[in-house]
Computed example of a mutant assay.
Amino acid sequence: MRKLAALAVLVSSLSACGGAGENVTPPNPPTPGPAPQLSADLCYLMDTTMGEISLAVDNTHTPVTGNNFASYVDEQFYDQTLFHRVINNFMIQGGGFTTGMVNKPGRAPIVNEANVGFSNLRGTIAMARTNVPNSATSQFFINTLNNPQLDYSASSVGYAVFGQVIAGMEVVDQVSITPTAKQGVYSDVPVVDVVINSVTKISCPAG
């Protein structure tokens, strides 16, 4: 029972800090068959105050989510935002707040593409959202452990994985152990800001 309670707290931590009432209709069971492999259609260099993280985004299987992320990058939306929520042995979340935990509103929410079959494995990047399934905007998180409890299933709408870290996982791990504290109404906020200086498009590795 204690483990289940802890899990519920962690999953609720992926709210995109906007807050919305529970509005979840259980999805249809996943389509049987092998899960697709993440492709590297678009690649990005995320420069942070703790080092560089390279990401590959799958536009083939998650076109809505991939194009959404690409649009925010093209607008330089993520520049000077924070990794504002960090939970060791779970994930690091960013893309929606600037220094002082000032909310940076995103565009209209997108459809949740968690049902394509990707799992929230260590090193994957996925969309944060509120309790409303189709509520993700700009915020994302990087899994620091395998988190299958976040996947789409017959009883859960899941969190949409749309890419993975291809270099710099050691930076992600360092961010994940940075000291945190409560700041106002927000929990698990790094004591020292972890700033995303910029996100820029790069060439994807061959092969």
Rank of each mutant, 00 (worst) to 15 (best):
P32L: 01
K104R: 15
Y72N: 12
D79R: 14
P109G: 04
A108M: 13
A128T: 09
T98L: 01
Q80T: 08
T124R: 15
Y78P: 01
N67Q: 07
D58Q: 10
F97K: 05
L82I: 02
N59K: 14
H61I: 06
T62P: 10
M91F: 07
V116P: 13
I110N: 02
P34Y: 04
T130Q: 12
Q80L: 09
A136V: 07
Y72Q: 13
N59W: 00
V102P: 03
A35Y: 00
G106T: 11
G95K: 15
D47K: 14
P34K: 10
F77M: 04
N67C: 03
S138C: 10
T99V: 14
D79F: 02
F140V: 03
N103Q: 14
P133Y: 08
D41E: 08
T137V: 00
V64I: 15
F140I: 07
R129E: 08
F83A: 11
G117I: 06
I142E: 00
H84Y: 13
Q37H: 05
V73S: 06
T130A: 11
H61Y: 14
M46R: 02
N112W: 12
N67K: 15
N131D: 06
F90R: 03
S71I: 00
M91H: 09
G106M: 07
F83D: 13
E52K: 14
I142D: 00
Q93M: 07
P36K: 06
L38T: 02
I87C: 02
T99E: 15
I53F: 04
F69C: 05
R129V: 04
V86F: 07
A136E: 14
T137Q: 12
G33P: 01
D58L: 11
N112T: 12
T31V: 00
E113P: 02
S54D: 11
T124D: 07
Q37D: 09
R122V: 11
Q37K: 14
E52D: 15
F141P: 03
N67R: 11
Q37M: 07
F77A: 09
C43F: 06
D58K: 12
V73I: 08
P30V: 01
I53C: 08
H84F: 09
T60M: 05
A108V: 12
N115K: 03
M91E: 10
N103C: 02
L45I: 01
P133F: 05
F97T: 06
E52V: 08
V64Y: 09
Y72F: 10
V86D: 13
G33A: 02
R129S: 10
T60P: 02
Q80H: 13
A70Q: 14
D79V: 00
M46S: 03
G66K: 13
N67T: 01
E75Q: 15
V116K: 04
Q139G: 03
V73N: 14
